[in-house]
């Protein structure tokens, strides 16, 4: 669906390139999490992919066609949900969706169905100026789906949301994923990427040092160990065991038989730890 090869981009007047020859691909139906700290090149990459920055070097093909060769019809095929909600505040949620719906020439969704999908069916006739941040974010996601796009760009879809709203948005993304849509997910939230992305790309200083499935990354960079926490003489104690041959490890077996076990955890690492280990940087 997306092929990016040796992509270089330098902003006018800048001395250093913002992107230094990045290469990646996204398959049809895949969710790629694009992770990196502020200023790493996430937004620049997304702007190039959605056709807003044209003076790049390298190859950027979407649906087999160079992005710069697509005309305005490109936007009939892609949906974009920006990090900061952007709506006509004096118009209602339904009026906003109806206007944007009228811009597409192909098959479009029923705006009321989309409002139901994002949990705003009862607020369709309310001016967006009266919406909370979470409602506006959900309306942004709904707008990006109006024309049933095959490729969706989601920029920080849970940023600034409370846990309930964040969960709602993630459920919507999972539903799109199940429908086979291709999703380019830009985020610096590791939990979101871990839950939603089939693969994650780490971007730092305009370069991508690693692209892989979150599970594989965590396993590769974690320790093949099990840690057992248990109560002993009134205090909490912990002991680790190699994962290999655990079933024949008599010390382990004896411990879980004899002691009052509190927790047992394998010692795979978190995506955040992998990011720090691979890039030497923290997400902030």
């Amino acid at each position: 669906m997306i092929e990016v090869k040796d992509l270089v981009f330098t902003y006018p007047g800048a001395t250093k390139p913002a992107l230094k020859g990045i290469t990646f691909e996204i398959a049809q139906g895949e969710v790629l999490g694009f992770l990196g700290p502020s200023g790493a090149g996430k937004s620049t990459t997304q702007k190039i992919l959605i056709g807003l920055l044209s003076s790049y070097q390298g190859t950027v093909r979407v649906k087999g066609k160079e992005v710069n060769d697509w005309g305005p019809d490109y936007y009939e095929h892609i949906g974009v949900s920006f990090e900061v909600p952007n709506h006509y505040l004096k118009l209602t949620g339904l009026e906003n969706l109806n206007y944007f719906r009228s811009l597409y020439s192909g098959e479009v969704e029923d705006p009321m169905r989309l409002l139901e999908l994002v949990g705003l069916a009862d607020d369709g006739d309310t001016p967006v100026g009266q919406y909370s941040k979470g409602m506006r974010v959900r309306l942004t996601v709904a707008r990006s789906l109006l024309h049933k796009p095959e490729l969706i760009f989601l920029d920080e879809p849970t940023a600034g949301l409370d846990p309930v709203n964040a969960r709602k948005v993630m459920a919507i993304v999972e539903r799109l994923q199940a429908e086979g849509r291709t999703i380019f997910l830009t985020t610096h939230n590791m939990q979101v990427a871990d839950r939603l992305a089939d693969r994650v790309a780490f971007i730092v200083d305009g370069e991508i040092p690693t692209i892989d499935a979150p599970r594989d990354l965590k396993l590769r960079h974690g320790k093949r160990q099990v840690q057992v926490e248990f109560h002993q003489n009134g205090s909490l104690a912990a002991q680790t065991f190699p994962l290999d041959g655990l079933g024949e490890n008599n010390t382990f077996i004896e411990l879980i038989r004899r002691e009052n076990v509190e927790t047992i955890h394998t010692q795979e690492t978190t995506l955040e730890n992998v990011f720090i280990e691979v890039t030497g940087r923290e997400l902030g």
């Binding site: 305005p72 936007y75 974009v80 909600p85 952007n86 709506h87 006509y88 811009l103 597409y104 707008r143």
Partner: peptide
């Protein structure tokens, strides 16, 4: 200020 220009430029509006 509402940010809608950002939404319009990624729509088919010419």
């Amino acid at each position: 200020s509402e940010g809608v220009l950002q939404a319009l430029v990624v729509s088919p509006l010419r």
